[in-house]
Design a protein around this nucleic acid. Structure first.
Length: 213
DNA sequence: CACCAGGCAAGTA
DNA sequence: TACTTGCATGGT
């Protein structure tokens, strides 16, 4: 399994090259993006983030101050805007009360404690929590998403019914716990998924991961 | 037109 | 515990 996962990584890196994730400038912006991209195409999230930046709302103090109704209007292109506005407010309140809005302070805490805290915030589930941990806080955690599950089950690496923890363990128990590796690997999986592993279009005959490719 | 996109929480049995 | 449903825009 170890060599299989390492081989897949090498193949993806060779085919696609480094992906340069996360597409965000600051830990705060990355975290906002992680919430906005829940079940949503990134191009729509990028519109919402541009609107936030345009309105001067892409910082902790600004997002804390902006009314939820106005926030919802700004992030409208990202979809689920009422729900996501509420989730962003929940996250900002957590950041405020626990760390006075400081990611540097937040980063000092142990990984396991941070993950528990994030999962306790309404609107932050496993993938969003791990995305914030990996891409905003640079912690060595593997992010699992719908593509990860689809790709690994289609290639018979895990069963169809594998849950989040199972999928995450496949990577974390068989790869060195290095943040740069987990960062690039997840980004490459998303790239592969977008290009070759769509929900209703398997296209597995041209998948770069096939042995004859 | 139908279907999908870098999920999550709340409700039901 | 194990399903089901609501949330919503923009691209193909």
């Amino acid at each position: 399994m170890r060599s299989r996962l390492a081989g897949i990584y090498k193949k993806l890196l060779g085919v696609f090259g480094p992906q340069g994730w996360w597409p965000g400038r600051t830990p705060f912006e990355i975290s906002v993006g992680a919430i906005l991209t829940q079940n949503t195409n990134w191009s729509n999230v990028a519109r919402a983030i541009r609107a936030l930046r345009q309105a001067g709302c892409l910082s902790f103090p600004a997002l804390k101050a902006v009314p939820e109704t106005k926030l919802a209007r700004l992030i409208r292109p990202a979809g689920y805007f009422n729900m996501k506005a509420r989730r962003l407010k929940h996250f900002v309140r957590y950041l405020d009360h626990s760390y006075a809005g400081s990611f540097r302070r937040m980063r000092r805490r142990p990984l396991k404690a941070l993950r528990r805290e994030l999962l306790a915030v309404n609107g932050i589930g496993p993938e969003t929590a791990d995305s914030i941990l990996l891409y905003a806080l640079r912690k060595p955690v593997f992010v699992v998403d719908a593509y990860t599950k689809r790709i690994l089950s289609r290639h018979r690496i895990v069963g169809e019914d594998a849950d989040y923890a199972r999928l995450q363990n496949v990577f974390m128990e068989n790869l060195p716990a290095k943040e740069p590796l987990f960062n690039e690997y997840h980004a490459l999986i998303v790239r592969l998924g977008k290009d070759y592993c769509k929900k209703t279009k398997p296209l597995c005959d041209v998948c770069p991961l096939r042995k004859d490719k």
